[in-house]
Write a protein that binds this DNA or RNA. Structure first.
Length: 423
RNA sequence: GGAGAGAUGGCCGAGUGGUCGAAGGCGCACGCCUGCUAAGCGUGUGUACCCCUUAAAAGGGUACCGAGGGUUCGAAUCCCUCUCUCUCCGCCA
């Protein structure tokens, strides 16, 4: 959610910046709604003041034994006016809130202008793309031949876009998660949390998946429960409605969770393999920081995610999302794309974003800076560190051998009981 | 799933219809006093929003005693619904 005052005072600048996202927003109705809301609110508050004053008078009068019938009749009139004024105000406020919740974040000034993914500039590249003296296979072939990825049986127990990991596949998934958590907690300074996978509407609204993107989520019928699409939701909402002690900032958390996405609208995209599933595991990094630090913190967050790929020896590049490709709540985003020989392409494996105060304002996450009377909103950031399934894909495809076996990256071996090769 | 108890300010804790944003204590901040420390004394100490201004503040107002609704001229106090916490029983990992 954007700062209402910013909208009122700098509407033209906001319009211009949001236009770079390609967002279509009905500004006329915003201006009208805002005016109507404030006028109506001020009028009702004046009436309430009058009512309170008169009611207090009744109390005093009764105590001193006087007759309050006339006063009471007068208050009744005021009370009626208030009752009549309330429903229209509530309606205006509902529409106003709805509007505010569907306006995307402002891109940061450092975000490159562009219309879509093709305009995302590459920021840096790391690692050598491996050369093969044979035709590298896609991970689903490697995995099925080794008997560690099982799509057929996953289809039986759940449906399309699910997988069952067998034997070393299951071990690899678990080892990768362990390795990532160990790195982030021991070396990168994150504290681990393990939250529920089910979340409520308020949480999803706080991090801005709702109200706009309900179609991407799984809802549990007859309840206010949803399957969380990313630990960003749980971990950011840990502190919803709280004022954080400034000494705790920057607060850095990481979490390993299962994530659920309906993948509505992505039929025909990445249909094979485990790139795009309804359930996948991910280690997420989340930060709560002072506003003045958030642009340093997105850099270090991205580096923390990159450190996993470097330790695993997986080549990747970092791209900066342009204005047209930026997610709804993000002010700035770096995507990390890992090299996948089976697809001969870089594929997103992490998305690191600074939301500035956009989520904090929705979720009411504040901090009090010393010497200031009012509290301020923190800035929130998050990024995958990393998507475990896609990392597993990268390992299989980059470390595959001519004979169909897969070498286990050295950094991972301690987490796999010393296993050197999946055969 | 069954039975019961509870939810008040940073914390503890009073408050069963009127001047209660809320006693008292603790904590915290500032000041005074005391040749250190401790004690003592005084003052202050929630948040959001609206109005008025604004560089900011001050000032005025509204709302908030778990959440939502209701009764009443008037609700922390009465009624209804929900959520959460605790205790006991059952069940499960």
């Amino acid at each position: 959610m954007l700062d209402i005052k910013l909208l009122r005072e700098n509407l033209e600048a906001v319009k211009e910046r949001l236009a770079t996202r390609g967002a279509k927003i009905d500004w006329e109705s915003f201006v009208a709604l805002d005016r109507e809301r404030r006028e109506s609110l001020a009028r009702l508050e004046r009436l309430k003041e009058k009512k309170n004053l008169l009611s207090g008078g009744i109390g005093k009068l009764k105590k001193s034994g006087g007759d309050a019938t006339a006063l009471m009749r007068e208050v009744e009139e005021v009370a009626r006016a208030i009752r009549e004024g309330e429903p229209p105000l509530a309606e205006v406020e509902r529409r106003f809130d709805e509007f505010m919740l569907t306006v995307p974040n402002l891109p940061h000034e450092s975000v490159p202008l562009g219309a879509g993914p093709e305009d995302n500039p590459e920021v840096r590249r790391w690692g050598e793309i491996p050369r093969f003296d044979f035709k590298p296979k896609p991970h689903w072939e490697i995995g099925e031949e080794l008997g560690i990825l099982d799509f057929a049986r996953a289809g039986k127990i759940a449906g399309a876009r699910f997988v069952v990991y067998h034997k070393e596949g299951a071990l690899l998934e678990r080892a990768l998660a362990n390795f990532m958590l160990a790195t982030h907690t021991r070396e990168n300074g994150y504290a681990e949390v393990f939250p529920p996978s089910i979340v409520n509407t308020a949480s999803l609204t706080g991090t801005s998946q709702l109200p706009k993107f309900a179609a991407d989520l799984f809802k549990l019928e007859g309840t206010d429960y949803w399957l969380s699409p990313t630990a960003e939701v749980q971990v950011t909402n840990l502190f919803r409605g709280e004022t954080l002690d400034p000494d705790r900032l920057p607060l850095k958390l990481c979490a390993w969770t299962a994530n659920f996405r309906s993948e509505a609208g992505s039929y025909g995209k990445d249909t094979r393999g485990i790139i795009r599933l309804h359930q996948f595991q991910k280690v997420e990094l989340v930060k709560f920081v002072r506003p003045e630090q958030s642009y340093e913190e997105i850099e270090s967050l991205t580096r923390d995610a990159e450190s996993i790929l470097q330790k695993l020896g997986l080549p990747y590049r970092v791209v900066a999302l342009c204005t047209g490709d930026l997610g709804f709540g993000a002010a700035k985003t770096y995507d990390i794309e890992v090299w996948l020989p089976g697809q001969n392409a870089y594929k997103e494996i992490s998305s690191c974003s600074n939301f500035e105060a956009f989520q904090a304002r929705r979720a009411g996450i504040r901090y009090r800076s010393p010497g200031r009377t009012r509290s301020d909103f923190v800035h929130t950031l998050n990024g995958s560190g990393l998507a475990v399934g896609r990392t597993l894909v990268a390992v299989l495809e980059n470390y595959q051998q001519k004979d169909g076996t897969v070498i286990v990256p050295e950094a991972l071996r301690p987490y796999m009981g010393g296993l050197e090769k999946i055969a």
